[in-house]
Structure formats: C-alpha cells, structure tokens
Write a protein that binds this DNA or RNA. Structure first.
Lengths: 255, 255
DNA sequence: CGCGCGATTGAGCACTATCAAGAGCAGTGG
DNA sequence: CCACTGCTCTTGATAGTGCTCAATCGCGCG
C-alpha cells in the first residue's frame, strides 16, 4: 500500500526535484505526508473561489482547470492542469482560494491538509524552494496567457494553447503519447482563450483546412508542429524547468 | 546613511510582515542586505526578457510595468508595479527573466544580487514564506488580468484596471492621495488591457461623460467609486493581504 | 429509441481595430 | 522669445474580427 502511494507521488517529487536538489530526508518527508487519494468524476469541483483553502491537492491522473466567473456570467479558464501538477498550491500557501478548480476529465487527486504543507516547508528549505518555484512557473504561465489573450488573434491564441499543452503533456505522459489528446470541449477552449464557442469552432475548422491539425471527438492530432508553433507565436521558454526542447519527440504521428 | 536606507526599505519590510510574522532577526537580516539604491529615468529598462536574472530589485519610488512582445510587434503589459513592490522577484527566484521590466515614471530602485536573496531565504523560513506569498499575490493578479482581458468589454477592463490601481495606491501612498494619480499614457493603458490606444481614448471619453471619472493630463480622478467598481466588476479579494476594505478612504475628493 | 450535450452552420450585427490627420503641449535650441 | 520637434491625445471614416441568436446535426448513453 505504501509503495503504491509512493508510486503515485513520484511525478510530484520528480517535478520538485527538477526545481531544487533534494536530499534523501527531503524526499522521505514528502513521501510520508498523509496524502489521501481519491477518484473524482469529470466536472466535479476540487475547490471553489472564496473557500478558506484548508487542503492542498495534486493531480495523480486526469486533467483539470482553474476558472473565474465574471459579472455577466461569463467564465474564464485561467489555467489547465495535467497529471503531476499541483491544483491549488497557490491557494494553500496563500490561505485563500482565488479561483475555482474543476475536473475536466475523471481522474485521481492526492489531498493533504494545508497545515502539513506549512510544516514541511519550514523544516525543509530545499522543498520550500521547490514548491515556491513551482508556483513561479504557474505565474509565468499566467503572464503568458495574459499576453496570449490580450495581443493575439483567435487563430494564434488557439494554436498557442495547443502548443503549450503538447509540451506539458510530453512532460507528464510516459511514454510520450503517439498523438496528442486534448480533452477539452470547444466551449472550454473558448473559455480558456477568451473567445466564444462558435468562433472556436470556425477557427479550428480553418486550422484543419490549413493542414495544421486534425480533430476527432476531443482529440487533437498535430499535423504540422513547426507551423503550429509559428502560427501560435510559441516559445516554450516561459514553461521553464523543461528539458531543453521537447520538440524532438514526434507529436505528429498519426493514430 | 544606514538609517536612510533603512527608511527606504521600510515599505518592503512592512509588506513582508503583512504576509508572515517576522522576528527581530528576520527584519535585521533583511535590512542588512547589501542593497544599492539607484535613480532611474522614465522608460529605462530594469530587465529584459531572456536575461539571466542576476539581480533582484524593489521599487522605492515611481511606477513600472512588466511586458512581453508578441510576433506582430505588439506589446502586452502584464502587470504594473507601485512603490513598495518587488520588480522581478519571480525572475530572481526562478533564475530566468520571463518578461521585460521598464520604468513608467522616473523613480528609485533598490537592487540586490540574486544570490543574497537565496541565502536569506534558506536561513529565514519566515522571510522565505513571506517572499513566496508576495509572488503568490502577483500570480493572483495575473489570473485576474487573464479574466479581465479575456471576458470583459473595453469599458469594464479599463474600469477594473483603475480600481486595482486605486486600491494598490492606497496601500503604498501615505498619506492617502486626495486624488488618484494614474501615471499611464493611454497607449500604456491600451497595452495593459489588450485594446488599441484609439479605443482606450474613446472609452475614457465615454466614462468621463458618464461621470465616472475625470482626467487631466495623466491624472485620473475617480468621481464615482462605487459605480466604477460596478462597471469594472471589481472585487478586491484577489489582491489578498490587504486591510479589510480600502474603500473607506475617499477616493473621489476633487483636486 | 429518445434524450442531451457538444459540434456545426447561417445570417446579421457590434465592438474594436485600422488608417489618417489634426490639435495641444512640453522641451529644445536658435 | 519664438520656431521646431516629438509625443500624446483627439477625431473621423471605414473595415473587419469576433459575437449573438437560432437552428440543425451527430453521437454516446440510459
């Protein structure tokens, strides 16, 4: 049982180690945290904006997103999480929930009381730093999204989103997926890019006709990675802490 | 001389103390950091995207912004800093510069080698936490900007920006300014909201005609704070760590 | 087989961008 | 003291990207 949970925590530790060199004690301390694992359904909420933020979650499997609601009822997805990502580290460290977190697909999350996190950080400076840096990468992605939504047209925005996904998925999926599965509905893509579902639909069609991508159900296959990067004005530098370049792995293999 | 620099560092310490209770040793350690102070002109760059990020800066006086450039040459301002803010804490902690930082007005910055910051964090967990939280507030603001740009129309976006400013200025200006000085050109507002300068101009005019604000040169006077908050769909919660509500202080006094 | 959500399509409109030119103002130099 | 220069703000006309409303289609699921 213990080895099973260790196995599930591995992606998180790997990620933290990429940020800061951790010694055995650090790793052991992390693995011995009283995480509880739970299967969650698509659409279920992990947290809601305004909640007190008493826990801290990591995503073992599945995809999720963070969103905010505006006055008119509109929804803005502000980030997407893939397996190995922390869902609400910011909220936990801040003590308040500044956005809602919802599952995009069914999956499994690891949950921890926020107080444990605090104690861990105090006793393990290297882990502390790694956790900090993890939130900094998140912030860097936010800044890129501001730029993406503020200064690019629909086609570029969507292309950029797809590129970001592709790179981040390469990180967490092993072995690298032969094709690139995007579990987002067009409405979710719209909410993530500041567009409307209708316009996303038309833009995706146009991208298909240009030979950039193919789609089947909620699966996107990237046909022309280089062109997609160009269209999306995509430079993976903002994702930080990534292996030099992820482009070597063929993303364009067909199903 | 030492007391002068202590004076200049006070806003930073105040801010950090709001995040995490610091003991005497923490404060002393921070004050004794080898900051160097420097006057900088409007428009001068503090950092450029892609730089190695060897230093860490705080803003003693003046205003600055962080921006990114996109393929077409467009500029997106991703955040604005007021006195007492750290300019590139994220970059320093991350070891790479993910956006450029430029002065909006003349001002004075306090600079420190990034390595000092690292040592400080390792030895002072409470300071470490405070610095972390400071970047989390930044991230929270980024997320709000994503929402603002992605899901609000021009009028709301600008109103929201003004509201954010007003609240953050109340924090750092003492005594509270009788009117609210916005040192941004319309072009800068445009780059911060994802609009064009022309459209910002027209929207500001419309807001003036509605009695929301007045402008003189680069100064904005808020005439109807409550209405402006409503128009901007503004809820200061995302700014965190603020005194309960900043609205008590009259922002609408005339010049 | 019917239900329901997501994808698709069409028509018309609105918000915002683009292009271009003029006005106000501050700093500079003759 | 007065052009000169450059920047920001302002205004007009026009175009276009993306939105709204509405209906249809396709498909998985009970």
């Amino acid at each position: 049982m213990s080895s099973l949970s260790t196995e599930k925590l591995k992606p998180f530790l790997d990620k933290l180690e990429a940020h800061s060199s951790l010694n055995r004690a650090d790793c052991a301390a992390f693995e011995q945290l009283p995480f509880s694992f739970e299967r969650v359904a698509a659409g279920s909420h992990i947290a809601r904006e305004g909640d007190p933020a008493a826990t801290f979650c990591g995503m073992v499997s599945g995809f999720s997103y963070r969103y905010k609601i505006v006055a008119g009822g509109g929804r803005q997805i502000v980030s997407v999480q893939v397996p190995g990502d922390f869902l609400d580290l910011q909220s936990a460290a801040l003590g308040m929930t500044v956005y809602s977190v919802q599952m995009m697909t069914p999956g499994e999350v690891a949950t921890l009381p926020a107080a444990c996190l605090e104690r861990l950080a105090d006793r393990h400076p290297d882990l502390h730093r790694a956790l900090w840096r993890e939130t900094l990468v998140d912030a860097s992605i936010f800044a890129e999204w501001v730029t993406n939504i503020g200064r690019r047209d629909a086609r570029s925005r969507i292309a950029h989103l797809l590129c970001e996904f592709a790179v981040r998925l390469q990180q967490c999926v092993s072995p690298p997926a032969p094709c690139f599965l995007l579990p987002m509905s067009q409405e979710q893509i719209a909410d993530a890019t500041g567009l409307t579902p209708v316009h996303v639909n038309r833009t995706l069609q146009s991208m298909r006709h240009s030979g950039l991508i193919r789609t089947q159900k909620r699966q996107v296959i990237i046909d022309d990675w280089n062109q997609l990067m160009r269209v999306g004005d995509f430079d993976p530098a903002y994702l930080v802490a990534l292996p030099p370049v992820g482009l070597a792995i063929p993303l364009h293999q067909s199903v």
